[in-house]
Nucleic acid binder design. Structure first.
Lengths: 198, 198
DNA sequence: TTGCTCTAGTGACATTTGTCATTATCTTTT
DNA sequence: AAAAGATAATGACAAATGTCACTAGAGCAA
């Protein structure tokens, strides 16, 4: 089984790779972020991609979307530290075969890889149900405005970044706050972030 | 060498523990957070504590402080995902023998543990220099006010939480913003957070 | 005592943020 | 073409936030 492991934290990546290599019949290449993974996938063939979500340059979810469009035969297993409903939904939409929380022991990882390669889909029922709940209520502009607000940018700066009027930016933020039942932009950004909507 | 490994992400913890156990002469117990580690340290004797910083209930830095006061003979190695000057300074103040970024490969971890047990102090020069730079300019009240502001609490809510008047809370936040050259409370909180001051 | 410092509070003011009704374009649907 | 929709803008207002000078009291040192 030829595997590509994408994970930005070097210690975690090397640790997981070492353990996977202990298994018979597992061949592991390593990628330090999503963009690196893209390159390696283009230059050699893999049976399965194992990727973290939270990575710089290109997130695991963006990478999955790209794989779906360009290498649909490549199986994917996505893992993440944070249990956010939005993550699961986006992963499923990108056609991943496996979804794992880093809350699971290392044995679950090895096991999942084997099952996915055998054609199974490995996603816990509990997580699946969560994904069906809460769907992202934000528009794209609202999402971007919230992202910038979260960094501490002023309304004016947000408006400039999105090429809209200051009043419009305030309207977007106000609308987002209303949808998320938040009483200010910071709380709204926090809620959206926790749900995996940013 | 009897080691206690404190790390909240199960997959990372079990992976590191498995790899350490492959080494001859290494005996590893696992703790799921700082509080759990406290308990285990009290009930049995260890040669070295290996702990993550970012953990719920009790952070690795708080745990280190506690070990310094109650079990000064226990060697400590602290690891973290984030390179924040404040972290290094606080770790050194807590008397740790080793400081590692998760940016280092897994071999560095094994190596560091052995050197620390041999009495060496394992902290890269580069990181040490960083620690000498920027010192935390915030008072305790300012820090707490920023923490709450970061969550999206209103001035009023922050004041209530800290048992001070609303005007006083605003003065604290204003002062913090001035110290950090931020133009609003959110930006101030972000800067403080990035420096490891929250 | 007097003076100094630290922490907390007050009040006044300007600026920013949040709310809402209304309008203006532009695109899509009927 | 008319109606409906989506997107963006405007203006007016209330509320929250940021700034700053000043006061009050507690603790401590000379």
């Amino acid at each position: 089984m030829k595997t590509l492991l994408a994970e930005d934290q070097t210690m975690v990546r090397t640790a997981l790779a070492s353990l996977l290599r202990l298994e018979a019949d597992v061949d592991v290449d390593e990628a330090v972020d999503g963009a690196d993974a893209q390159q390696q996938i283009q230059s050699s063939a893999y049976d399965v991609l194992l990727t973290d979500i939270e990575m710089p340059k290109l997130s695991g979810l963006e990478l999955a979307k790209w794989v779906q469009n360009t290498q649909p035969q490549l199986k994917m297993v996505v893992m993440t530290t944070f249990n956010r409903a939005g993550y699961i939904k986006r992963a499923l939409d990108a056609g991943v075969s496996g979804f794992l929380l880093k809350d699971a022991p290392i044995d679950a990882l090895v096991n999942s890889l084997q099952r996915v390669l055998a054609g199974e889909r490995v996603i816990s029922n509990e997580l699946l149900l969560q994904a069906l709940d809460q769907t992202d209520p934000l528009t794209d502009k609202e999402r971007k405005a919230l992202q910038l607000a979260q960094q501490g940018l002023s309304t004016q700066a947000i408006a400039q970044a999105l090429f809209i009027a200051e009043g419009t930016a305030r309207n977007y933020l106000s609308e987002a706050m209303s949808k998320l039942h938040a009483s200010n932009r910071v709380e709204a950004a926090r809620i959206a972030h926790q749900n995996g909507w940013l």
